[in-house]
Design a protein around this nucleic acid. Sequence first.
DNA 1: CTGTTAGCGCTTTCAA
DNA 2: TTGAAAGCGCTAACAG
Lengths: 340, 340
Amino acid sequence: MDKITIKDIAKKAGVSIATVSYVINKSRPVSPELAARVNAAIKEIGYYPDTNARSLKSKRTSTIGLIVPDNANPFFAEIAKGVEDAGFEAGFSVILCNSNAMIERELAYIDLLLSKRVDGVIFAPTSLSIQPIKRLVDLGIPVAVFYRETSGLDVDSVRINNLESGQRATQYLIDLGHRDIACIRPLSMETPSGQRVDGYQRAMAGAGLALSQDLMPQGNNRISGGEIAARRLLESGKRFSAIFSANDAMAIGAMRALRDAGLRIPGDVSVVGFDDITLARYSEPPLTTIAQPKQEAGTLAVQRIVERIDKQHTGGPREFVMETTLIERRSAAHYQPGES
Amino acid sequence: MDKITIKDIAKKAGVSIATVSYVINKSRPVSPELAARVNAAIKEIGYYPDTNARSLKSKRTSTIGLIVPDNANPFFAEIAKGVEDAGFEAGFSVILCNSNAMIERELAYIDLLLSKRVDGVIFAPTSLSIQPIKRLVDLGIPVAVFYRETSGLDVDSVRINNLESGQRATQYLIDLGHRDIACIRPLSMETPSGQRVDGYQRAMAGAGLALSQDLMPQGNNRISGGEIAARRLLESGKRFSAIFSANDAMAIGAMRALRDAGLRIPGDVSVVGFDDITLARYSEPPLTTIAQPKQEAGTLAVQRIVERIDKQHTGGPREFVMETTLIERRSAAHYQPGES
DNA sequence: CTGTTAGCGCTTTCAA
DNA sequence: TTGAAAGCGCTAACAG
């Protein structure tokens, strides 16, 4: 049962291959009888048109590439899910590419996607470098990027307002009556989570609250980093009644360290995170945090890219800023004078 | 800057397109001078061979399809990661397909993958039906399946011994001195997690312990299902000092219900789960559970499939049974006489 | 309404 | 050592 082609079914149906093609694609009227014969043959032989051969002419592969740092990270897993789902809906397959946060691997995958002639690429970049994106743009491949500014390139971006959201989280704490608010920062400020810290600073300044380096320890963006940062905070001797953490993982680590030190949450110190990872809902106590749409981000990226593929959009770069939401759970409460 | 082809670079280098092809694929010796000219042209123009066109002749797409119920589920996310990683290593792209646990969507994706002429399919089926797999096998596409018996079809399977592992988990509890051991079951016994319950029963029988339907409530495989099941257990009035849950999610739900009822874990009741999901490490208390390799499963599936693609294996079905490991955390302890 | 045929970009005989 | 040319499976003029 070797490869069956359009020819086989043409012969079987007693028509020309052109006719077969036309009934398959409905790209030209075909008499009912012939159409019926063709369809019957297709069904009987079990024929699947070769989309690659088709692409050769049509210049369209109906395939998009998705490059993320790590699809096992729940955050990107959600995004990937959104992309896959919207892609399927729109008739596109998605090639899954993990960069493992290595720029060389991003580049390698881009070459591969280029060779596969994907119609577009959805990209969650690891670094600020525009090199990988530029490669794509220069070749005229539609690109959508997550959580980055478009930095002058003609690509679409889907992101949130990190600064504003960080500000809002902090303001929430301020509104709760907290004055001495610490902030657990990421290692680099040139990142999305770094901008959240800018938001923190802006909120503090807006409320006339003083900033202190001692109250802004850095962490590695993971649970362990949060633990260490919180311990550092405790050791500094500075008083604080609340913590805003630039991401949930560090917030959860911080809560653990706080509890280990005998502090109650939110009794002694309130904690607000950022991201709304799955764990946030199940942490002890459940974490109040800023949620950003993830599946929706994937969906939006697909829409943008399809618009470009279909030439519905040919203009310049577009930015789509998604709304974040503050999810109130149980790790933050009104300030109540006490120790610490 | 329109599509550039092998012709463009042939012209630029002043050679025939055949020569270009040969230097790209090193499929025939080419004089150093020509090779150099060609490579220079490729570099300068920025040429990427069209792998689809290539596939047309070579009958190989270097692409595999991965069908899972939901890549956002951490379990399948890990598997997908393993597949992607091993695939990249082996020179294969992977097309991500979520079936959303719907057999029609599995079928739809299979048709799509067939049309894309993928070299193989890695499949985590939703149902026991062999219909989807049969379609692939009949067309001679290499297939690897997760967590299912091969049921007579010529496919490879990568799985764990659920029965034995369930038995081991239960035996662990027995060895801890527990006699009255409950079991939270899935809705259907015709599933991998159902087999774990068979293992539970076997262990109980082996230890001469009686089974009771009251101690075997069903759950929907999610946290909520575990909560409800545990509550039912409590209401039954039957005494039990330990619970084996057919999966972690339900175990975590059960622990929550138990705590809400004022019971201490593992003081009053020990709990053992199955799967070792991420949450298990961070639950309160951290959950003792059976871990099954996930990324490794993905890697193994890719290996098997590549062996078939490369015709290194042409025999019949193969089963690869992976080892599970009992991860001792803090939700299970020695039996100590008390209430409940 | 239907069939013939020229490619799409590439690989690979077959000749030179 | 190199090139010409015949396809791979399909689409889409171009002719009937």
